[in-house]
Design a protein around this nucleic acid. Structure first.
Lengths: 168, 168
DNA sequence: GCAATTTATATTGCGCACAACTAAATTGTG
DNA sequence: CACAATTTAGTTGTGCGCAATATAAATTGC
């Protein structure tokens, strides 16, 4: 192998606008997967997947803001998809698996027969304390400052808003 | 349905540590997918997928830093996986599809027969200018300031480092 | 009142991600 | 040198993501 005579246009790494580590898109992509990996211990303990956990976050949240006993955690597939920014092609099979696991119920709306309404079960409700405990524990053991996390969070939402026009 | 008597512990939404929009993990997850969506116009024009684009970024980068004519873009599957933080279960079929598309070559290493070496072809090299043009155009039309992008980028790498202990 | 359109979900097909496992080559060690 | 341990890819199986399409119920227009 020779080893000399570099290509002219790209000789200096620092000048390459397509360098992997310079891409915001790659940092996002890698960080998102690393974060999902970090959640694996809890997810395995609860025997759910990461997007299933996100569905539960939505159901738990609604469950907490409504009258006790009343089925306020009920939400349509469409509304769920809008919150999670996921479409029915992703949600339908995912929700079916969660239904089989006994974490939620799926039935057709009584007023509008087109909608499928998802409802949290007691089994699904029962996972919340474990998830909460784990999340609080992680919050304490993270190597990032509270300020770093807050700034990152704000920056990500700003990015989401900037890209919002391309939402599904 | 009643409609009154909220649940005690969660009555105030703002106090729910598991609220979806408060989760850094969800902001990351949603932003990463929104970013991938934003790349779709270019990816479709080049007839590649997003992770295939990332592979090309690595190969283009290596291609630019070595002697012309010498096959410096060559890289093992393992080294590629380390850069992209992906394992062989993801990369092997992805690289096979790229080989069929004619974007790269895959052959066994001559010294060590365990490794598979991936090499950029002229067809793969030819996609770079189009990608570069698109990326530069986006950089100008983004609604985020250069400063916002830089801070977000830095924050994401800081997070990646913090989570680094859990890398595959 | 009913055809045309819109809305809401489900289905299909492809390509990741990643865990778990297998196979083959290489290295280290007595 | 023999051979166990390690390294490197590949294989298999499950579950997303999402585009494209299908289906069916509800709404609108005339």
């Amino acid at each position: 192998m020779s080893g000399s005579a570099e290509r002219p246009g790209l000789a200096c790494d620092g000048a390459n606008p397509l360098a992997l580590e310079r891409q915001l898109c790659f940092a996002l992509y890698a960080a998102s997967r690393a974060m999902t990996r970090a959640y694996q211990p809890m997810l395995q303990a609860l025997d759910i997947t990461y997007p299933q956990y996100l569905v539960l976050l939505v159901l738990w949240e609604r469950d907490g803001t409504v009258a006790a006993g009343d089925d306020g955690a009920a939400i349509s597939v469409g509304a769920l998809g809008r919150q999670l920014m996921l479409d029915s092609g992703t949600l339908t099979p995912l929700l079916k698996r969660m239904e089989i696991r006994g974490l939620l119920d799926r039935r057709r709306g009584t007023e509008d027969e087109r909608v499928t309404v998802v409802t949290l079960t007691d089994a699904g409700r029962a996972l919340r304390p474990q998830a909460l405990a784990w999340v609080e524990k992680q919050r304490d053991s993270t190597k990032l400052t509270h300020r770093d996390v807050k700034e990152l969070h704000a920056g990500l939402w700003k990015l989401l808003e900037a890209l919002g026009g391309d939402l599904p």
